[in-house]
Design a binder for these strands. Structure first.
Lengths: 228, 228
DNA sequence: TCAAAAGTGTTTCAAGTACACCCATGA
DNA sequence: TCATGGGTGTACTTGAAACACTTTTGA
């Protein structure tokens, strides 16, 4: 963390970044390299500058601390309890995003000692109220995923239906019926058959699909419902 | 608006308060009585003090400016674009609530020239980006009402199914089928028959229902779905 | 006896659930 | 030929949608 004149001193941003790999859901944490929380794990986060919007700040902060950049961060909730930051009064705006782990190489920023993905069901102790923020965001995600088909960013550009199913199972932490999941998703016409197949698998090769953003946006406008 | 040492100067709160009366949905606005926005309508809002949580601040501000107090305000979204507040950089946390208009007598606070309910489909010009905040909140409400049965605060403690229907029609701005709406709501077991009837109506008296908060909370835990 | 709203019933169709079963492929 | 996951089909049940109909009440 750095203190400087051009930041708003009572206001910070923290990012909850979810990633997915091999049936497991992960969250991105940094280990603080300076300051009173030295050595503690925490959500990537820092101060907002006077000359940037909060959306811009979220991206800058995440990118500088973890090298995960140029992603779509969505605002989640603002946390403003009196005791949440012990040193002084700080209100924090939480952002979240879903990313494909394999698209990013992690690099700790100048004030971070380490950056790592942690399985969401097995996270370490975190600084400040970051555990609360994380848990609140995870249950928000669980809820959200049941109402709109999100999470395509967590997968490779071309993916199989089983991968998608496993992603949903990871987020919801529960088993789903393969056949019905398949039908439900295909009926939405959100997935496009790439006409390609899996390679080098020791079983029948699955069709690779990609996610169609145009169709997704049209559905969003209409305010669609999606139940897993 | 008041400037003082004990407030966080880059951060404010604005409240979108919805009310309902006779098939119409309203929003609560104040007319500024001092400062550069003198005479303009705006959402009730002001600065956050160092010694209060943001939830407390929201309640204090709303109450002092409009006399609408002791209600459940829920955080909605934080707005932080660079140009949203012309004088200097201010980020605002928007809260919203649904209240029964008849439970409150409006009183303008010391810095407000007026307080009034406006029909949501016919609001005046507003200061800053308050129109954007309001519209964003209204569409959020529309979406929310379709997924969970909210809005009971907007009605009297005992209400008829037609009143509830009209509330939903007001929020969604669309006609709904009486019979199906009835069936859907009753099946949820969320409404309790008070065994009382409407009085002095020139037609068959309707059953008065009340909303059961315990049942509602149980349903919330399970993460229920509700479609209008 | 009429208007107005309360309240019930019915038919149709879409969609969710559970689960059995066949297919393709490499080891 | 077996294990593994891919993919299809079906029977059952629930629930949404549309709408006609009966009931109650005061004017």
């Amino acid at each position: 963390m750095q203190y400087s004149d051009d930041i708003i001193d009572a206001l910070s941003i923290d990012c909850v970044i979810f990633g997915f790999k091999e049936t497991q859901l992960y969250v991105l944490l940094v280990k603080h390299g300076i300051g009173p929380t030295l050595g503690q794990w925490a959500l990537p986060g820092s101060w907002i500058r006077y000359n940037e919007s909060i959306d811009e700040a979220a991206n800058r902060i995440l990118s500088s601390q973890t090298a995960v950049g140029n992603i779509y961060l969505e605002q989640f909730k603002t946390f403003g309890d009196l005791e949440r930051f012990p040193a002084r009064r700080v209100i924090t705006i939480a952002y979240y995003a879903l990313v494909n782990i394999e698209n990013f190489e992690l690099h700790a920023g100048p004030t971070e000692a380490d950056v790592q993905w942690f399985k969401v069901w097995d996270v370490p102790k975190m600084a400040f109220d970051h555990k609360t923020i994380f848990e609140s965001c995870l249950s928000f995600l669980k809820h959200k995923v049941q109402h709109e088909p999100i999470g395509f960013n967590l997968l490779p550009p071309k993916f199989t239906l089983l991968q998608l199913l496993e992603l949903y199972e990871a987020i919801l932490n529960q088993k789903l019926d393969k056949s019905n999941f398949r039908k439900k998703f295909l009926k939405m016409n959100l997935l496009v058959d790439t006409k390609e197949r899996q390679q080098d698998v020791s079983h029948r090769a699955a069709t690779l699909y990609r996610f169609d953003e145009n169709i997704y946006n049209k559905l969003l406008d209409k305010g669609f419902i999606f139940e897993v």
